[in-house]
Amino acid sequence: MTNRIDQPRKLDLVGNPIHLGGMGTGYEATLNYRVGDGHDEVTGHFQVGGGTGEHGQFHVAVDVAHAAFKSDQLLVQVFEVSPKDGSEVHVVTLPVIYGPRIKPGYYGYREHKVVRGDTLSGLAKTYYGDASLFQYIVRANPDQITDPNKITPGQVLRIPIGRK
Rank of each mutant, 00 (worst) to 15 (best):
D40R: 02
E41P: 07
E41Y: 12
E41D: 14
V42D: 07
V42Q: 13
V42L: 10
V42R: 10
V42M: 06
G44F: 09
F46W: 10
V48M: 10
G49Y: 06
G50T: 06
G50S: 08
G50D: 07
G51Y: 04
G51N: 04
T52M: 12
G53C: 03
E54H: 05
H55R: 01
H55N: 08
H55F: 04
G56P: 10
H59W: 07
V60D: 07
V60T: 08
A61N: 10
V62T: 13
D63M: 09
A67N: 09
A67I: 06
K70L: 05
D72I: 01
Q73A: 04
L74F: 05
L74S: 05
L74M: 05
L75T: 15
V76L: 07
V76E: 08
V76W: 11
V76Y: 03
Q77C: 04
V78Q: 07
V78T: 03
E80A: 10
V81I: 15
S82D: 13
G86C: 08
S87M: 10
S87A: 11
V89K: 14
H90N: 15
H90S: 12
H90F: 14
T93N: 04
P95W: 02
P95G: 05
V96W: 00
I97S: 00
I97T: 00
I97K: 00
I97D: 00
Y98C: 01
Y98G: 00
Y98N: 01
G99M: 01
G99L: 01
P100Y: 10
R101S: 02
R101K: 11
R101F: 01
R101G: 00
I102E: 00
I102S: 00
K103R: 04
G105I: 00
Y106H: 04
Y106A: 00
Y106F: 14
Y107S: 03
Y107Q: 00
Y109R: 00
Y109W: 09
Y109D: 02
E111P: 02
E111Q: 09
H112S: 00
K113T: 14
K113L: 05
V114N: 07
V115A: 06
G117C: 14
G117M: 15
D118L: 01
D118A: 09
T119Q: 07
T119M: 11
L120G: 12
L120E: 07
L120N: 06
